[in-house]
């Protein structure tokens, strides 16, 4: 008898396998939940990996305080439905403690600050593995990162000192103080995630779908008008039909003009897309090597 798994089944099986390896190999893992579709997909995969048992890890959300309200509502409803533990790390706390300084100027964002809060949260709870929803198709630094990515005690990634990852054997052995970032959906593309969400009928925060919103145009991109965005008289607020392709901080997540009200519309839109997902993230555009530098500094 010959068999070949359908691609979504294969990606799903691989991700479940990786999640179970985390459970089996680590003492105190955590699943980083951002409210975005990738981490929502991870939660679904965790259900497939561990139900009817409990998740062998809590969900951890690093809250910049500048989130879309829809994301927070979604998060709280989801945690309630799952009956799992949620730990929140507040960027505001890091600011109040004087560990980081709020950026100034028009393009100010708390996106870069969350690395400090993340590292503090990891240290406080002594997490030895953090599961994240990053994918290799997002960006070329990510394309080279391992599925089990060892970080030193400063959270740093060293691209030259990565462990070889052979077959489906993941080496999670670490020293005290180190931790491992684990990316179960490394091999998925944006389209794969959307197709999976459709197949599994997973509910998403409403901002992924087209809606009317007040936006301003900045550096050629549509940004949601909000109290968190530093605006001046040059910024003109318009009402447009938009949706968001990623869910991050309100100050650095650009919207795209869209009439995709249903998931089928979104999949069609992405299939014919002219701009990749991270192209809508202002934080990656700052320099060509932006992501590589941030990862070395402990970012996801």
């Amino acid at each position: 008898m010959k068999h070949q798994l359908d691609y979504l089944d294969e990606l799903e099986a691989e991700a479940i396998y990786i999640l179970r390896e985390v459970a089996g190999q680590f003492e105190k893992p955590a699943l980083l939940f951002s409210g975005g579709k990738d981490s929502i997909t991870l939660v679904r995969l965790a259900e497939k990996a561990f139900r009817p048992g409990k998740f062998p890890f809590p969900l951890v959300h690093i809250d910049t305080g500048h989130n879309f309200i829809e994301t927070i509502e979604y998060r709280d409803a989801m945690v309630k439905r799952l009956g799992e533990k949620l730990i929140i790390g507040h960027v505001q706390d890091s600011i109040d403690e004087g560990k980081v300084v709020e950026q100034k100027g028009k393009n100010a964002s708390r996106n870069a600050l969350q690395t400090v809060t993340l590292l503090d949260t990891i240290a406080k709870h002594q997490f030895d593995a953090c599961i994240g929803g990053a994918r290799r198709d997002e960006e070329k630094a990510r394309a080279k990162e391992r599925i089990f990515s060892v970080r030193d005690e400063f959270g740093q990634w060293d691209p030259k000192r990565q462990r070889p990852e052979l077959w489906n054997i993941f080496n999670g052995k670490i020293h005290k103080g180190e931790n491992v970032r684990v990316f179960p959906i490394s091999n998925w593309t944006e389209l794969d995630v959307w197709n999976y969400i459709r197949r599994e009928k997973i509910e998403l925060p409403s901002i992924y779908f087209a809606h009317k919103r007040e936006v301003i145009t900045r550096n050629g991109q549509l940004m949601a008008a909000s109290p968190f965005l530093n605006m001046d008289e040059e910024d003109i607020i318009e009402s447009r039909n938009v949706r968001f392709r990623t869910v991050g901080d309100m100050t650095c997540t650009a919207a795209v003009e869209s009439y995709a009200f249903h998931i089928d519309d979104i999949i069609e839109e992405i299939s014919a897309s002219k701009i990749s997902e991270r192209g809508a993230r202002m934080d990656d555009k700052v320099s060509e090597a932006a992501m590589e530098d941030r990862k070395k500094g402990g970012y996801f």
């Binding site: 290799r136 394309a143 080279k144 691209p159 530098d293």
Partner: peptide, 18 residues
């Protein structure tokens, strides 16, 4: 790939493309 590679004109590691 990475900045380090572009500077040296080499490929350090396995890169995955989709």
């Amino acid at each position: 790939g990475l900045k380090a590679e572009r500077e040296q004109g080499i490929t350090i590691d396995v890169a995955y493309k989709y």
